[in-house]
């Protein structure tokens, strides 16, 4: 049963607290998912450890070409950050499509990853950015690529009763690199995506140096379209190639039937449209 609610003031204090509670305390940031899980009894804990007042976790910083977003940074802060809007516009777009304004003002970007849902908008964009999560615990700090963060639907590599995801980082986009985040949903806000797709594309002269294509919800976690990426790598990109790449991407995905958010068949056909549109948009912004 929940007894304590602690506002941590530093990472060190939070780690000490986790240790003291020996598995009976749980890190909470925005809490927009955790509070629902608690009331639905999907999780239980005797102490919630709130990290949103920890100053060092509230920063969005640029360091040596890397952008670092602290664990207490909200979707609204990311959406409105000039740095993110210029150096990772797809993330601003993705964070801007999470839930509603009230949710975006509360929920955090790192929480979007730690919650480990298959189609969390910001997480999908972050995977396309090649993001790495910083995990801090008693034993020290480790860095885990976002793709390795998922142990299953709703299951994260971070154990929030023992560890903290303290920040997430990714390379800022450079000239010649473009990106896109596109989404199909049943309404303009407060709707989980039927599909979302993120693309980051790097051009070297007129050839594709590399591209990352991430699709969701088409697997238990956001899914890289590795075959499609490979197909485009080194190619001189054009509409025909994009169309073919979109078809390849679809063949890598296994969307499920959802009584609420569209049949598998519809999702598959839409995935092709979305991947194609995302690639076209990323190409336009890269040029």
């Amino acid at each position: 049963m929940l007894k304590d609610y602690i506002l941590a003031t530093s990472i060190e204090e939070a780690l000490v607290c986790l240790k003291t509670y020996a598995g009976q305390a749980r890190i909470i940031a925005g809490g927009t998912d955790a509070m629902l899980d608690l009331s639905a009894k999907k999780i239980t804990t005797s102490c919630l450890l709130d990290i949103t007042k920890v100053k060092e976790l509230k920063k969005i910083e640029s360091m040596d070409g890397q952008i670092v977003i602290g664990a207490a940074v909200t979707h609204s802060e990311v959406k409105n950050s000039d740095l993110i809007r210029t150096k990772a516009p797809l993330l601003a777009e993705a964070s801007g499509s999470v839930g509603s304004l009230q949710i975006r003002n509360t929920a955090t970007v790192v929480g979007n990853v730690v919650n480990a849902q298959p189609a969390a908008d910001a997480a999908v964009a972050l995977m396309a950015l090649g993001a790495v999560v910083e995990i801090t615990e008693d034993a020290g700090t480790s860095y885990v690529p976002i793709e390795e963060m998922y142990l299953g639907v709703g299951k994260s590599k971070v154990d929030s009763t023992k560890q903290m995801a303290t920040s997430i980082r990714f390379p800022a986009l450079l000239p010649g690199q473009g990106s896109a985040f596109v989404r199909l949903a049943q309404r303009g806000a407060l709707a989980l995506p039927m599909l979302n797709v993120a693309v980051v594309l790097s051009l070297c002269e007129d050839k594709v140096e590399w591209v990352r294509i991430v699709m969701a919800p088409v697997a238990p976690k956001p899914l890289r379209a590795l075959e499609a990426e490979k197909y485009l790598q080194g190619a001189v990109i054009n509409d025909e190639l994009i169309a073919k790449a979109a078809k390849i991407a679809v063949s890598e995905a296994t969307p499920r039937d959802s009584a609420l958010r569209g049949s598998a068949e519809y999702r598959k056909e839409m995935l092709e449209v979305l991947v194609r549109r995302a690639l076209q948009q990323a190409l336009t912004t890269a040029r």
Binding site: R187, A189, L190, L260
Partner: peptide, 24 residues
């Protein structure tokens, strides 16, 4: 509001029932 084959509403709240929002 749709029902499943056991007579349960699939769209039983604001999260799942697609009322238009101000954005729509």
């Amino acid at each position: 509001i749709k029902y499943d084959d056991r007579g349960r509403q699939l769209n039983n709240g604001f999260h799942k029932y697609m009322l238009p929002t101000a954005m729509d």
